Amino acid sequence: HNLTITQGKLFFHYNPKLCLSEIHKMEEVSGTKGRQERNDIALKTNGDQASCENELLKFSYIRTSFDKILLRWEPYWPPDFRDLLGFMLFYKEAPYQNVTEFDGQDACGSNSWTVVDIDPPLRSNDPKSQNHPGWLMRGLKPWTQYAIFVKTLVTFSDERRTYGAKSDIIYVQTDATNPSVPLDPISVSNSSSQIILKWKPPSDPNGNITHYLVFWERQAEDSELFELDYCLKGLKLPSRTWSPPFESEDSQKHNQSEYEDSAGECCSCPKTDSQILKELEESSFRKTFEDYLHNVVFVPRKTSSGTGAEDPRPSRKRRSLGDVGNVTVAVPTVAAFPNTSSTSVPTSPEEHRPFEKVVNKESLVISGLRHFTGYRIELQACNQDTPEERCSVAAYVSARTMPEAKADDIVGPVTHEIFENNVVHLMWQEPKEPNGLIVLYEVSYRRYGDEELHLCVSRKHFALERGCRLRGLSPGNYSVRIRATSLAGNGSWTEPTYFYVTDYLDVPSNIA
Rank of each mutant, 00 (worst) to 15 (best):
D273P: 15
E247C: 13
L505N: 11
W216T: 08
V423M: 07
A335E: 12
P387L: 10
T303M: 07
G207H: 02
V324L: 09
D291S: 01
T210K: 15
T288W: 06
E433P: 04
Q256K: 11
N490Y: 15
A263I: 11
S342T: 10
G436D: 06
T497W: 11
E290I: 05
R313A: 15
S305M: 10
N435F: 04
R471G: 07
I482L: 10
V411R: 13
Q275H: 07
Q380V: 12
L364P: 01
R218N: 05
S367I: 09
R301I: 03
N383A: 03
Q252I: 11
F215T: 09
R240L: 14
K357R: 09
H371L: 14
N326A: 10
T502N: 12
P434A: 05
N477R: 12
Y504I: 11
N255M: 03
C391N: 01
N490D: 04
V439T: 09
H371K: 06
E356A: 14
W242L: 04
G472R: 08
Y478A: 00
G207E: 02
N477F: 15
L505G: 13
F226V: 06
D273V: 15
E282R: 03
N510Q: 09
L437D: 15
P314S: 06
T210R: 14
T340A: 08
P314L: 05
T328S: 13
Y212V: 10
G368W: 14
E217Y: 15
N477K: 13
N435Q: 04
R319Q: 15
V214D: 01
A336T: 10
Y498P: 06
E249L: 09
H211K: 06
P434C: 03
E247G: 08
D385Y: 08
L379R: 01
K460T: 11
E430T: 06
V214H: 00
P244A: 14
V501D: 06
A381Y: 05
S315T: 12
G412V: 07
Y230L: 09
S203N: 15
V297N: 01
D311F: 14
D450Y: 14
D450H: 10
D273A: 15
G306T: 14
D323F: 15
G476V: 02
L228R: 10
R353V: 07
C267F: 05
D222K: 11
A395K: 04
T494I: 02
S262L: 10
G374W: 06
V359P: 10
S304V: 08
N208P: 13
A330H: 14
S486R: 02
H352R: 08
P434Q: 08
H416Y: 12
S284K: 06
N422T: 06
E281V: 06
E247N: 14
S367M: 04
F462R: 10
V214Q: 00
V324Q: 12
D261L: 11
C391A: 00
V439M: 06
R316E: 12
P346S: 09
T415A: 13
L379K: 00
G207T: 04
P244R: 15
N206K: 02
S398A: 13
T340H: 04
S320F: 13
R316C: 07
G234Y: 04
D311E: 14
S341G: 09
T303I: 04
F419Q: 11
K271A: 08
E281A: 11
S243D: 05
E420Y: 13
F226D: 09
D250V: 06
A330R: 15
S367H: 07
L237Y: 06
A263T: 06
H371N: 05
G322V: 12
Q219H: 13
K361P: 07
L232R: 15
L321H: 10
A309G: 11
P332N: 04
V331I: 13
E265I: 08
L487F: 02
L321D: 11
N339R: 12
N360T: 12
T485E: 05
